[in-house]
Design a protein around this nucleic acid. Structure first.
Ligand SMILES: Nc1ncnc2c1ncn2[C@@H]1O[C@H](COP(=O)(O)OP(=O)(O)OP(=O)(O)O)[C@@H](O)[C@H]1O
Length: 721
DNA sequence: AAGTGCTTGCTTTTT
DNA sequence: GCAAGCACTT
């Protein structure tokens, strides 16, 4: 196995570790993921393990796909056929579909997304006459989700306060409705599987015996349910291999629990712990900055991060006059980096705390006519038209699905309003049926025993829709997924409904078209597979294509690496986010999030903030992120020791406009980004950017003494050195 | 039932 | 500043 030569000793020890439990704990860029993939290859090639005896779990589809590709590079295709490699949820999905005989649901169950969940919780809260203002569906749902992640059922839900009592009641009813809808939510997938394996030795042994090796990536982000799951799956062979980094734990808010390491050590006392030390990704300056930030975290063992990739360049710090300037600075700088051939566009990434922050950055890219790729942000799967069509298909597949029915029963408007819907629910409840079943029966018209419950005006559209659903269900038996899709869209007159010839309408129709393209991959597969995939895949899984910069949240950046990284919005209140101000735990997680962002950079790191920012309404003054103080000042350029270095000249608020004039310029610039210059009073500095404006050259320079200044080349006496 | 216009309250992060 | 949610009208 020649690839073993390229590993350092510790990495090799991890890849070739013998049987038994192994825990690899190591910092960013130390090759954890690399070790995990190579171990898969090693087990197959050297240890005679069959591919289907290997289970490898990741958190995101993207990570799973990437790992699959990396293994493919090491071994021939047929040698890796059958590896069970996927996210926790997709693996649970596969197990659950086969084992429904032990579960309260049937094998055609559907997976509820957050929208569906909220819809059900809202229904329950309303029916229980609970104050929606006091008990926000999202917050109640959060409590339910946390409970499920800890494997706590509604019956076991602890009630210390009155609020707990309410949550418990909602939880119980919510769960009942999920089961009645023949549906599971994301958390159920983990909890059902974990409980199934725990309570049913024969099922557990079937899987535990099959998987000779279980490997888990990003172990620091597992919650209790996930831990229980892998523990059960590894219970027979005890070959469990986990890699993780406590400093990169950024998902505690959704139940991730680093105490799983302690549980692991308790449950597998014979575990070997392997530490990887050397960083192969980043320059030392970047690692030093990262250490500055993470060393201030509490309750952790100090780790030294080192590399032999050299010191590298200093970290750029830029304080923009406002958030528009912040965005155009990023785009301008990327353009410069590309123009000067320092980086490919695809080597650059822009990271931010919240999805909403992508908007200004995108606008700046659009204005500069530069392409980019946006990860996440519900751009496609969150669109109304996409969700609608999926809801129709889900109903065809599983008419019991209450969330989908409520969503689309009146789409396009067919005269079924709130009143009728409420009656439908009531009638269903009285007859111990799901609303969807009553609807299907109403298709028989006056024959149906439920017909009388509705006024004539309400019964007709219900019967109509019920009839349509019934014909789709029959058609689904003989049609392929794309054929069914076309049939549904045509019968609904969905195009006429959404495409009103306006630009927006066309946009919406394009999304439907895109969804149709996705069904084409399922021409030879079942509706079931299509729906499961759609439920588990998300906008986060944007495929890397094209050599263009990536825009993504810090969370989405975990596990990735880029040549040049821009972290924007380094203001207190954004990073750290204001919602974490009053919880020390949350604040620590914000710190780790920043750490994760910094350590994505291979060669160049830009830390950016804006001294004022458009909150809701007008621009508001902001303050630098407290984490910036933890980076040793000598690693940064563009910032004086006193902090607030460059107050923007008034003209700078028009930066975005300058950018546009730039492309129209005829005269050559005298200065280029990266050029070292000297100024009579400010001394030495480095050119950040230069452009022609009104027959003059406007140069942005970072001076060692005063930070970034904007100068006119004709007035300022700048010398190239 | 559905459309209009006004009020509210809101913004982490994701499978 | 905006979207969702509400009351009120037709
Ligand atoms: N022994 C090695 N020789 C050369 N390059 C290496 C070696 N080990 C790892 N690398 C490189 O270092 C980079 C980081 O590796 P990898 O992504 O596996 O790290 P990681 O520990 O999973 O990082 P993180 O925790 O930050 O996601 C990759 O580009 C990888 O190819």
């Amino acid at each position: 196995m020649d690839f073993l030569d390229k590993l350092n000793n510790q990495q090799r020890a991890a890849v070739t570790a013998g049987n038994g439990p192994v825990l690899v704990v190591a910092g960013p860029g130390s090759g954890k993921t690399r070790v995990l993939t190579q171990r898969i290859a090693y087990l197959i090639a050297e240890e005679g393990v069959r591919p289907w005896q290997i289970l490898a779990v990741t958190f995101t589809n993207k990570a799973a796909r990437e790992m699959g590709e990396r293994v493919k590079k090491l071994l021939p295709d047929q040698a890796i056929e059958g590896i069970m490699l996927g996210t926790f949820h997709s693996i649970c999905g596969r197990i659950l579909r086969r084992e429904t005989e032990y579960l309260p649901i049937q094998s055609n169950f559907v997976i509820f997304d957050t929208d569906d969940q909220e819809r059900i919780v809202k229904n329950v809260i309303r029916e229980f006459n609970i104050n929606e203002k006091l008990y926000r569906p999202a917050s109640v749902l959060g409590a339910i989700s946390r409970a499920k992640n800890e494997l706590i059922t509604a019956d076991d839900y602890p009630t210390q306060t009155y609020r707990d009592e309410i949550v418990k009641r909602v939880y119980a009813e919510y769960q009942k409705r999920l089961v009645a809808s023949n549906a599971v939510d994301f958390d159920d997938m983990l909890m059902y599987t974990a409980r199934l394996l725990e309570e049913n030795p024969s099922v557990r042994d079937k899987y535990a015996q099959r998987f000779r090796h279980v490997l888990v990536d990003e172990f620091q982000d597992t919650n209790l349910a996930q831990y229980a799951l892998v523990k059960q799956l590894a219970s027979f062979n005890r070959n469990i291999f986990c890699v993780g980094d406590p400093d990169q734990s950024i998902y505690a808010w959704r139940g991730a629990d680093w105490r799983n390491v302690q549980r692991f050590e308790q449950d597998f006392p014979d575990a070997q712990t392997i530490l990887l030390e050397q960083n192969y990704r980043s320059r030392q300056t970047i690692l030093d900055a990262a250490m500055g930030v993470i060393d201030r975290a509490h309750n952790r063992r100090k780790k030294k991060l080192f590399t032999d990739r050299g010191e590298g360049e200093k970290i750029f710090f830029y304080e923009a006059p406002d958030d528009y300037a912040e965005a155009s600075f990023v785009v301008d700088t990327i353009a410069q980096l590309v123009a000067s051939r320092q980086f490919e566009p695809g080597d650059c990434a822009v990271m931010y705390r919240t999805n909403a922050m992508s908007r200004l950055i995108e606008e700046a890219f659009l204005q500069a006519r530069l392409p980019y790729r946006l990860v996440g942000a519900q751009r496609f799967y969150g669109r109304r038209e996409v969700k609608d069509i999926i809801a129709f298909l889900r109903l065809v597949h599983n008419p019991a699905d209450e969330a989908s029915l409520d969503r689309v029963i009146n789409v396009p408007p067919r005269g079924i309003g709130d009143k009728t819907l409420t009656t439908l629910h009531l009638v269903a409840r009285q007859n111990n049926l799901q609303p969807g079943h009553v609807l299907l029966d109403l298709a028989r018209g006056k024959e149906s025993p439920y017909w009388e419950s509705f006024s004539g005006r309400a019964a007709l559209p219900l019967a109509d829709f019920g009839g349509m659903l019934a014909t789709w269900r029959t058609a689904a038996l003989s049609l392929t997924v794309p054929e069914l899709f076309d049939r549904v869209v045509k019968d609904l007159g969905y195009k006429e409904y959404i495409d009103d010839e306006s630009e927006e309408g066309e946009d919406h129709w394009e999304n439907v078209d895109e969804l149709r393209r996705l069904t084409l991959e399922y021409s030879t597969r079942t509706l079931d597979e299509f729906l499961e995939n759609i439920a588990l895949v998300s906008d986060q899984d944007t495929i890397t294509e094209g050599n263009v910069p990536t825009l993504l949240t810090l969370h989405a950046a975990k596990g990735l690496e880029f040549g040049a990284v821009f972290i924007v919005g380094l203001d207190d209140g954004i990073l750290p986010h204001s919602r974490s101000f009053d919880e020390p735990e949350g604040m620590e997680e914000e710190r780790r999030l920043f750490y994760v962002g910094i350590t994505r950079a291979k060669d160049k790191l830009y830390l950016i903030r804006s001294i004022q920012r458009g909150g809701r309404g007008s621009q508001e003054e902001t303050f630098p992120s407290r984490f910036l103080d933890d980076i040793p000042a000598d690693l940064l350029i563009g910032k004086t020791r006193t902090g607030r270095a460059m107050r923007g000249a008034p003209a700078e608020t028009k930066w975005a406009i300058h950018t546009r004039t730039q492309s129209a310029s005829v005269i050559e610039t005298q200065f280029r980004a990266g050029t070292r210059v000297k100024h009579s009073s400010w001394g030495e500095g480095i050119v950040l950017d230069s452009k022609i404006q009104d027959d003059d050259e406007i140069v942005d320079v970072v001076f060692n003494s005063v930070g970034i200044k904007r100068l006119s080349a004709s007035l300022a006496n700048l010398k190239i050195i």
